[in-house]
Design a protein around this nucleic acid. Structure first.
Lengths: 188, 188
DNA sequence: TCCTTCGCGATGCGACCGTATTGCGAAAGG
DNA sequence: CCTTTCGCAATACGGTCGCATCGCGAAGGA
């Protein structure tokens, strides 16, 4: 058995394909995800997708994990600001205010809708949510019961605002204005 | 040409099938909606579904209109309470706190996720949202700018709380508690 | 140079999709 | 009773799906 060094970066290919999955989801939702579509979006052959992911399910799981990783990374990149501004900046990161974040928000809502109906697929999502909540809790007050209610409410508010912006129910400006008004309300 | 009076209630059949669509969506999301599945869920033949809806798209539109009608009806059934309690009652109607409302919320999020990615399909949804906002505005203060921000924020909050409950990120009790805390905050 | 191993493209299969088409039984006016 | 019309079941078709399988070409030790 002669060990031949890998001549392709397995992880990188998987990442590339997973990214293509997210692109397809952002453009057309989960229903448009098929091995063949993803392959086209990634600029590779369907066979290659199949080579790197043994099943569509495994492929979707990898794509979802990439979303989680991206969110984590985004959270880490927070400067040193007064708490109020920091919290505001963090929430603005979560709203679909530009192309990039619209893309991410679309992906997120697609997976959330799926999780609403297939609870077993929501573990990754719930883990991300927990991380977010923990992160926010640390940024706000100590863990008083009051602070927890505030954190929960603000997260839900941002989720709702994002959803309404995504579906065209609310203008992006209004969402930001509403967020600011409620931050005033909540943070004294 | 002899006119034969209808021996079946066309509208009723359509409603029955549309209801079956919603049942399928609530159980498995939009992806599981097919003419054959809907027919099975409705206890009729696939051919009959096709007879009453010329295309799947028309069927989906009818189902979505049914959701809108149900929401409208629900809003109408509000008693005479102090404004604060009335607003609270209204919002509790929108959270997935029991089987029935979980079903409706699942349907709603499925359609919302679709609309996030297919904007042209979101008209009905946006109309419903507008009706809701108007209804809430009338129940709250007069249309001061302040009241509008409060209404927008509360609606977004409820959307977000509902989404988190649906996806198992948040317990139903906590959602209600958070809603109450924020109602206190917002309504003086 | 041969030979093994890996990467991956190509092909095929069975299932399911939306929809067009056809035909038949029942109901009702003439 | 006959005939027309309506309600609907059945069937067929072309397309896409996920996935299993096969085979070839290139890349390196031996």
């Amino acid at each position: 058995m002669t060990r031949v060094p890998k001549q392709v970066d397995h992880a990188e290919r998987r990442a590339h394909i997973a990214e293509a999955v997210l692109a397809v989801v952002a453009r057309g939702g989960l229903e448009e995800v098929s091995v063949r579509h993803v392959a086209t979006a990634a600029g590779v052959s369907p066979g290659m997708v199949q080579h790197y992911f043994r099943s569509k399910d495994e492929m979707m799981r990898a794509a979802l994990e990439r979303v989680g990783a991206a969110v984590q990374e985004r959270l880490g990149a927070a400067g040193e600001l007064p708490p109020r501004d920091l919290v505001r900046a963090l929430f603005l990161q979560l709203l679909p205010l530009d192309r990039q974040r619209t893309r991410e928000a679309r992906v997120a809502v697609a997976f959330l809708a799926h999780a609403a109906v297939h609870p077993e697929a929501g573990d990754e999502l719930r883990a991300n949510a927990r991380a977010l909540r923990a992160h926010l809790g640390a940024r706000l007050l100590g863990s008083t019961a009051q602070a927890d209610a505030v954190a929960t409410g603000l997260l839900a508010l941002v989720d709702g605002l994002g959803l309404q912006v995504l579906t065209g129910q609310l203008a992006a400006d209004d969402a930001v204005a509403t967020l600011d008004a409620w931050l005033d309300l909540a943070l004294d």
